[in-house]
Nucleic acid binder design. Structure first.
Lengths: 192, 192
DNA sequence: CCTACCGATCGGTAGG
DNA sequence: CCTACCGATCGGTAGG
């Protein structure tokens, strides 16, 4: 008589998702170069080489994760912004949402958005292309602000985004929430 | 009759300086992990292993370069600030000087200040210690500002520094000088 | 998903 | 400063 497997059989699709999540966390915590395929395998309970049944290459895996993270972030921000009408309130919603994503320790998200320098050239080109598209969201938000004429909106947007993207480098949970930080940012960046 | 060397003999001290400068440029451009000892050797005209006559280890080399860069930056900023009396003018001087350093493509400097994540743990601890000391300079400048009570000065300083440190990620020379950016930053961050 | 391996590259060293 | 090497680790693959 045939013995049943102790572990329930998991559909290949879900197994792949599981591996992607593990990889996202490792990339976010240790960077692209700091994460080896063997590291990912270890957390998934398999050897590094076995991962290639689910993915094509480390590069492709990273690009896929990065793009999916930006897709999700874009959706969340668009939803949050849509609930507001006043330009400053829309900007504050966007900042709070992006900070929420960047500062959530459980997020399998874009803390990897930064150090593009440690990634191979062809990968970097793809990441930058996707990120530029993401940033048009903020270009539109900034365009709607009633800013003094002497403020350059392109600089303004770049400064704002670099703050939001590097907040995870200095933020420590406790005293302030991501929402508090977003309010501080808008307070500073607000000019009428 | 003895032949004279074609290349003039260079004192060991200067040779070491030369190697440090080459290493600084490579680290700044390609990051810690992206720069191998063999890369440094190649630009210096020797094999990677030969560098160990001048340095103890790659880690020690990186820490030395990082600390020397911060020493130099600290001096330049302190000098620039000392020429100003008014708190906002002092902050603007500091921002302009730091941006000058960060955005100068010839600077063998602190573009490496950022991605601490790709560096080994013991190295990171040393870098952070030195950087924290560097940042007290800005803590004092921000403390002197007449800011509205609802603005948190710790957040304010972190936002300001993260902008200055990541400006090299988006800045492209041409339309605006580092001084222009500094003026934009202070315009945005100025509140009376 | 594993075994067993490939070629490449890494930081670093001994000995001259 | 070179030769010649060490052990470790990397991304990836063939074959089952």
């Amino acid at each position: 008589m045939p013995t049943e497997p102790v572990q329930p059989v998991m559909p290949q699709r879900d197994r792949r998702r599981e591996i992607l999540e593990i990889a996202a966390h490792l990339f976010a915590r240790k960077g692209y170069r700091g994460t080896s395929m063997r590291d990912i395998g270890e957390e998934a309970g398999v050897l590094g080489g076995s991962l290639y049944h689910h993915i094509r290459s480390k590069d492709a895996l990273f690009v896929e994760l990065h793009d999916a993270a930006l897709d999700a972030a874009e959706r969340r921000i668009a939803d949050a912004v849509a609930a507001q009408a006043e330009p400053w309130a829309r900007l504050e919603s966007a900042c709070e949402t992006l900070l929420d994503i960047q500062l959530d320790p459980r997020s399998l998200t874009l803390p990897m958005m930064n150090d593009f320098r440690e990634v191979p050239d062809p990968v970097r080109r793809k990441l930058i292309e996707r990120r530029d598209r993401f940033e048009t969201l903020f270009r539109d938000l900034v365009a709607a602000l009633p800013l003094p004429a002497e403020i350059d909106r392109s600089i303004y947007r770049n400064l704002l985004l670099s703050q939001l993207n590097s907040a995870a480098d200095w933020y420590r949970p406790g005293r302030m929430t991501p929402g508090d930080i977003a309010r501080q940012i808008v307070m500073i960046f607000r000019h009428s």
